[in-house]
């Protein structure tokens, strides 16, 4: 085989792993003898590695939840999450909890959407055994500062050790056009709980609500500058205790 030009098809085919048997051996022999062919092969491989370096990281990015929702047949563009939620049970928790109940009875679109997003984010990320979080609990201070900065409001990461949930870490997710945070916790028997935190763009407080979706239960509310949703697989009263605890820990006097 004669080496003629850098456009020699066989060189590209070799670089792309398309040559086998005698064709491959012939190219290997040529590469030993021919400096120009070797240089051309290095250039092809260099360009391939540059392309992968530039775009390869895309596969490790968090996939936008809207794409996942569309693929799962849960709507997509123009999908109204709160319309879908009408089919699930919504319980408004009334005043028994004392000071943490607000007079805002009517369900706002924002908080209902939030619960849906929190649920989707929980389903997507909590099943991930190896990469459940972007920033691990070991870097809790960094995580807290980072999410506060991205969400735009000071966030305090609640400590749920007493309830048996230890912090795994957290990640940046989206709430519509805005950044939001997801914190993930785990029990000793690997039950996972997530807290979804977005900025409260409507700037009004809401009642605490529970929504059930299969085995999962989401408790959500908005308070001051934050809108929050806690999702996990547990009984309602257990969730209520947890949510109240989280609410109190997150209640930054401002």
């Amino acid at each position: 085989m004669a080496f003629e030009t850098v456009e020699n098809w066989a060189l590209h085919a070799f670089a792309d792993g398309e040559l086998e048997g005698e064709e491959r051996s012939a190219m290997e022999r040529l590469l030993v003898e021919n400096d120009e062919a070797r240089k051309a092969l290095v250039a092809i491989n260099y360009q391939k590695s540059e392309l992968r370096r530039a775009f390869g990281g895309v596969v490790d990015e968090a996939v936008p939840l809207s794409l996942i929702a569309t693929a799962q047949g849960r709507g997509g563009r123009g999908f109204l999450p709160y319309a879908a939620m009408a089919a699930s049970v919504v319980l408004v928790v009334m005043g028994a909890a004392g000071g943490w109940y607000s007079a805002q009875h009517s369900e706002s679109v924002q908080t209902a959407e939030l619960a849906h997003r929190a649920l989707v984010a929980h389903e997507v990320y909590s099943v991930d055994v190896r990469h459940p979080v972007e920033v691990a609990a070991a870097e809790q201070d960094h995580l807290q500062a980072w999410l506060s900065k991205r969400v735009g409001t000071a966030i305090k990461i609640p400590n749920l050790d007493a309830e048996g949930f230890s912090l795994l870490g957290g990640r940046l997710v989206t709430a519509g056009d805005n950044p939001a945070g997801q914190l993930m916790y785990e029990t000793a028997d690997k039950q996972r709980l997530t807290i979804f935190i977005a900025s409260n763009t409507e700037n009004k407080d809401s009642a605490l609500r529970l929504v059930e979706n299969g085995k999962l239960i989401t408790c959500y509310w908005s308070d001051k500058k934050l809108a929050m949703a806690v999702t996990g697989d547990m009984a309602k009263d257990e969730m209520m205790v947890l949510a109240k605890n989280i609410y109190e820990q997150m209640d930054i006097k401002s």
Partner: peptide
Amino acid sequence: LPYLRRFARGLCGDASLADDLVQDCV
């Protein structure tokens, strides 16, 4: 989805156009 996003990014460069393309594809 991650691979579709990478392919789309390579084809059109712009991240948000690429995700529009993936959305249409899905």
